[in-house]
Design a protein around this nucleic acid. Structure first.
Lengths: 162, 162
DNA sequence: TTTATAAGTCAGTATTATTGACATATATTA
DNA sequence: TAATATATGTCAATAATACTGACTTATAAA
């Protein structure tokens, strides 16, 4: 598919390779999100709820503005979704100790349960793909994905970049 | 991040690795689609139009039902989008020769122009990520992405699988 | 001739998202 | 302290995407 110039590490990037890259992203993401959406639609929630549940689960105590940055949506858009999740007991809000204007978000037990339900299929899907592809391939996957995202998002993945 | 068991090709898949995989997909896809969406919103079109333009551009003469399969949406959802694109002269429809019930789709010159505008940034983004990551990483990226998508989507990428 | 398929349409509804305009509480700065 | 900025929330109006269900038309296949 993608060939190395003999004796170098350069790539010949044909149009076809780039087209394929676009489609790899489209189909992988489509199938990656499909099942979670199905589960949620049975609970009157949508993909937006999934994302909120997911990120609050991963970063307990995160602020609303932090969540807005991650999701790249407006606070009015987040508002309805967050309100539902708080009202129905999936998410807790508590004022920040350092800055009492903040409303720090955490999952309740009920929220954690839903988070597990939603991400377990995605984790299994990633695990299967990783195992099948092998460790070197996973490292390549990481490199390319980091290259595709914006610089501003990349820092999240740099913890142990010794 | 992901480590090989010494002497084997197996992976230790920690929860943290799987969580990271989920986020790599989320952030890469978010940033990959953001600019195209911005361009389109200036023309009263949205991401759905983008996808239609893209796939019709890549597979000229594709049928409506084929497009529906790819997009995984209902024909009622596609209908509005397709109608707009046909009415405004971006896409041509012509009856199939073998099966005259079909309405085969192709881009007009105007459609091709928009397709170029929309995908050029995505191609550039992929090209930069590929170049930076190197040929081996790209091969790993392909393997993992193919593993993430459904079996039914994988055949698209198997042309030269000798 | 009956049945199935490809495509399209009409109606109703839900979800996600936007912009704009304000309001409240708290923090920071002059 | 007073003025300003920030974090969050809310109201209202609107748009885009998507769904289900019920039909219709044309053509193909059994």
């Amino acid at each position: 598919m993608v060939e190395t110039k003999p004796g170098t590490n350069l790539l010949f990037l044909r149009d076809e390779d780039l087209r394929q890259g676009i489609e790899l992203l489209f189909f992988a993401y489509r199938d990656f999100t499909a099942e979670g959406d199905t589960i949620l639609s049975k609970q009157k929630f949508g993909r937006a709820h999934h994302r909120v549940i997911y990120f609050v689960g991963q970063y307990p105590g995160m602020s609303v503005s932090n969540l807005l940055d991650i999701l790249s949506i407006t606070k009015q858009s987040l508002s309805r979704v967050l309100r539902q999740l708080v009202d129905e007991g999936y998410i807790d809000q508590q004022p920040g100790t350092r800055d009492r204007r903040q409303r720090l978000l955490t999952l309740t037990a009920k929220g954690k349960e839903l988070e597990q339900l939603l991400t377990s299929e995605q984790r299994a899907r990633i695990a299967a793909a990783y195992k099948n592809a092998g460790a070197d391939a996973v490292e390549g996957f990481r490199k390319v994905m980091l290259g595709i995202m914006e610089d501003s998002a990349r820092h999240r993945f740099n913890e142990d970049k010794t």
